[in-house]
Nucleic acid binder design. Structure first.
Lengths: 213, 213
DNA sequence: AGCCTTATTGATCATGCGATCAATAGTGTT
DNA sequence: AACACTATTGATCGCATGATCAATAAGGCT
């Protein structure tokens, strides 16, 4: 009984194989971290020789950077999509805080934290990190500015406030990565803090129901 | 001309050599990250054979964990010392926020961020991280509770608020690790957010002078 | 002065990494 | 049916890691 038959991998169209590789890298990163993206790990995951992965990517650094961007950009688009469905900036901001503190997204948080460190030695990755941080900040700034225009928020520096909110979310998520217990009502406390920063009424950013645990 | 004479290292007392090794690991971590702590790197830094480092440490994982604790615990003690010199909780909290956002401490922030990731594969390190996070939280909670006792603050859940403040600080610092520009008045915005959470008067946590750049 | 404890060496092993490239074999086209 | 293109292999190189341990030499003690 051969648990791993070791047959030659079926020949596939380049585009298909390339997609398979980036997909494997993506799953690997989400499950075990960006640093487990190696030629051998990715190749093994799709039953292919290590050299083939190298053949489809200029180098591993680029694969890591690309995987980071794929994972993070997808989340941004997803959340931006959720935003569009809400009528008022107040509700949009509330949903944003609620969604981003969701523990189901801890795997993405782990990617962010690892990228911050890996970026010190992978310049391509560092550039992607800055790019995606800017994208997140733009989303937040947009909501804050819309709130100001609608008369719901009041702050003189939407850009800085957006960065600040982003930083807080990142920090709380990173914390949750290591410490699960201890903090109760993360959403409530954060909402209160943000309400203070954007000049919204107390409680105006809280979701109706206690919702997610 | 031999730039590196390669002589045998002078024999030293075990305690002294051990201290030399932990010190080298410490500096290495602060300069180039926890992951550059290797038997060879540490040994080279003090002009000693790799095997000697292994002789003084059970394994590299332990050296990394110990180095993390040494760096972080020292900072906590230092800040706790500064706290003791201030009369009122309001000033203590203000100083804390101001001090911890100081860019001069970015090297320690980098250690924290790297430890969060490395903790996934180094259980000893993970335990140290949780321990030091608890220590920081305890310091913050103490200040918040003192503020409540003094009638300066008002919140029903000092423990959670302390965790929250800690998370915010961590997040903003991690952000500063990657993005230097964009955010102005980090201290002011954070102070405003924290004032909201602890129920302090607006502006009461701001330092007198703009102080550190 | 001589010995004996032990700090220190450095070679070694097994492992994993990224990268490279000649050889191989599948596939669509002619 | 033969061919040509190219996806795929897998062996290989150089380098780095942690760990181990017999051999060496320094220095304190008698």
């Amino acid at each position: 009984m051969s648990s791993t038959p070791q047959k030659r991998a079926a020949r596939k169209a380049p585009a298909e194989r390339a997609a398979e590789i980036t997909q494997a890298a993506r799953n690997l990163a989400l499950e075990r971290g960006l640093s487990t993206i190696t030629l051998r790990n990715v190749a093994a995951r799709i039953g292919v020789a290590p050299g083939l992965v190298a053949h489809y990517q200029p180098n591993v650094e680029a694969l890591v950077a690309g995987t980071f961007t794929a994972i993070v950009a997808e989340e941004i688009e997803e959340v931006a999509g959720l935003l569009a469905g809400l009528p008022a900036p107040r509700e949009q901001l509330g949903m944003l805080l609620d969604t981003l503190l969701d523990n189901a997204r801890l795997d993405v948080t782990a990617i962010w934290v690892e990228a911050w460190t890996l970026g010190r030695r992978n310049e391509a990755l560092a550039a992607c990190v800055r790019e995606q941080m800017d994208a997140w900040q733009a989303v937040l700034q947009g909501v804050v500015e819309a709130g100001i225009a609608a008369g719901e928020f009041e702050t003189s520096d939407p850009a800085s406030v957006a960065w600040q909110i982003l930083g807080m979310i990142d920090g709380l998520n990173a914390q949750a990565l290591v410490r699960w217990n201890g903090v109760s009502d993360r959403g409530t406390h954060l909402a209160r803090a943000v309400e203070g920063m954007v000049g919204a009424a107390r409680g105006s950013l809280l979701p109706r129901s206690p919702s997610r645990s």
